[in-house]
Amino acid sequence: MEGETITVIGVGNEFRGDDAAGLLVVRQLKEKPLPGVKFLEQSGEATALMDAMDQTGPVILVDAVQSNAKAGTIHRYDASEQSMPAQFLRCSTHNFSVHDAIEMARALDKLPLRLMVFGVEGSQFEPGAEVSSPVQGAIVKAVRQINKELQTLTGESSDA
């Protein structure tokens, strides 16, 4: 029996500038498939996202963020350990945001045992906008960081 599958979820809207960050990170990660790792793309629709997160294995979620930090900053939260900051991950056009989906899953005891959230700080989210250059750089960095995380996790799960 192999170790638990690791799920990497990229969230975003590819037609709204930096909001595409999560999707682009996942697409780059997919280019080098790792055994025991699956990749999902999500729009941020909360119920679908809660379903996607409902996994027995670890989950890594990547999304664009607007938290007044410098564009291109990469935030990392261990959401299984701590609640997400209130204004984090609220740049979705949905009322019921990615933040709310995570906290709602926590309230309903549906959060995966390990949930790491990577937030890429964006600056332009207008419809039709390009991905900004700080975010393009951050995407490359985030791919590297998540790859490292995946290697650690796959190592851990194969040892288990």
């Binding site: 019921f96 709310d100 906290e103 709602m104 309230a107 309903l108």
Partner: peptide, 11 residues
Amino acid sequence: QDAIQIAKDHK
């Protein structure tokens, strides 16, 4: 304050 708080009491 929000639905997450409702969920805690009315799961």
